[in-house]
Design a protein around this nucleic acid. Structure first.
Lengths: 202, 202
DNA sequence: AATTCCATGTAATAAGTTACATGATTTA
DNA sequence: TAAATCATGTAACTTATTACATGGAATT
């Protein structure tokens, strides 16, 4: 699943230019996908060569010209195939968590700074999400609601966890980690799933 | 932040072979990092050339020989530099959520199957996490506790969300998404952060 | 006056995955 | 006897990022 599939997907919502697709990704898809111009423009060019999209040059006044792409019937079929065929992957790649993993190798002020940055960053995303929601919520498809809700749910619990555990982590690192053996593992507190984790807290 | 940094990190916990590093990544780092042999072995070779690790060939009986790497003082310094310098990124790349986003383009049985697969997958990770925790919890550093706890927290809320919203999504797609306009957005229910989302639910 | 927004595109670079190559030992 | 585990490594390929190149209009 690559940028081409992603572009086909965005184009199901209407004709878009590469620039507009990027803007869309930054709002609607930010929880689970990112792509740069360097991958979007070549992807669109190849989709056109394959006949999955049609391109039209639009002359604008006061703005540069733009090249707007429209999905063809072939393109929609291709998208359906692609969506139906692949076993979905789900990957997180977080340098933030890697840094936290090695918290004891960092200066305390740096550690604290990183945590605050991340908390601030996540809070900002929550705010921006809210704007998107308030602008578009009447037009959202069930899938869009699901994906947006998923992102918000995960962000919300991540934020709560970070705020809860920040001081625990900082003081454990300060004391040296051998004194922290008796501490219960930093994990979910009010939301244990199906009793599975009941044994983990103690 | 690449595979090289990751290997340096794992080696702070003791001497390891490439194979053992991979195993470690699959358990301790699974929530936030992945790397294949094709990136680990070249990374170790280059770390050795740079003097950040020392290699020693260990002859084993009943098993193939292995090449065990040890962190040098230079290597530890390099790791500290790397950890301290980079502004931490945090990226999710999920074909699963992309599929959900385009739920209305999928056959209902396929959609249901994917959701069940993902729920099963996440539940399995929770179980495997629990085993790791029970095996190692006395030796965990504060950072390891934080990272593991973060992963479990996020997985827990994601699982609860999927179970909660599965039927909502399926029936909304069945009815056609225009009839779902009056539904509240699929989002956090019992865990609204700081009143920020209070306005979103209705 | 400087920066950001609009808008497209390419080239160099980075970074990783998958598949291949090899092969003994243990488990199902 | 088939498959998985242990164990290392390379080469071809895929995929995406960053930086560059260009430039008017609008905003701060």
């Amino acid at each position: 699943m690559d940028t081409k599939t992603l572009c086909l997907g965005v184009l199901t919502e209407g004709a878009r230019s590469g620039y507009e697709i990027k803007k869309c990704l930054e709002t609607n898809f930010r929880h689970f996908f990112a792509a740069s111009f360097g991958s979007i423009y070549p992807a669109l060019a190849e989709l056109e060569r394959s006949g999955f999209v049609l391109a039209e040059d639009i002359v604008q006044s006061g703005k540069p010209d733009k090249r707007v792409y429209t999905l063809t019937a072939d393109g929609l079929n291709r998208l359906r195939e692609e969506l139906a065929s692949e076993p979905p992957k789900h990957k997180v790649r977080s340098e933030f968590l890697l840094l936290m993993y090695y918290a004891h190798l960092l200066p305390e002020d740096r550690l604290s700074e990183i945590l605050d940055q991340m908390i601030g960053h996540f809070e900002q995303i929550m705010w921006e999400d809210l704007e998107v929601y308030e602008r578009d919520h009447v037009d959202l498809t069930p899938g869009q609601r699901f994906a947006l809700g998923y992102g918000r749910t995960v962000l919300t619990s991540a934020l709560a966890y970070m705020k809860r555990q920040k001081q625990v982590l900082l003081s454990a690192c300060r004391e040296g980690h051998h004194t922290t053996r008796d501490r219960s593992i930093a994990g979910p507190e009010d939301q244990r799933p199906d009793g599975v984790m009941a044994a983990a807290g103690d």
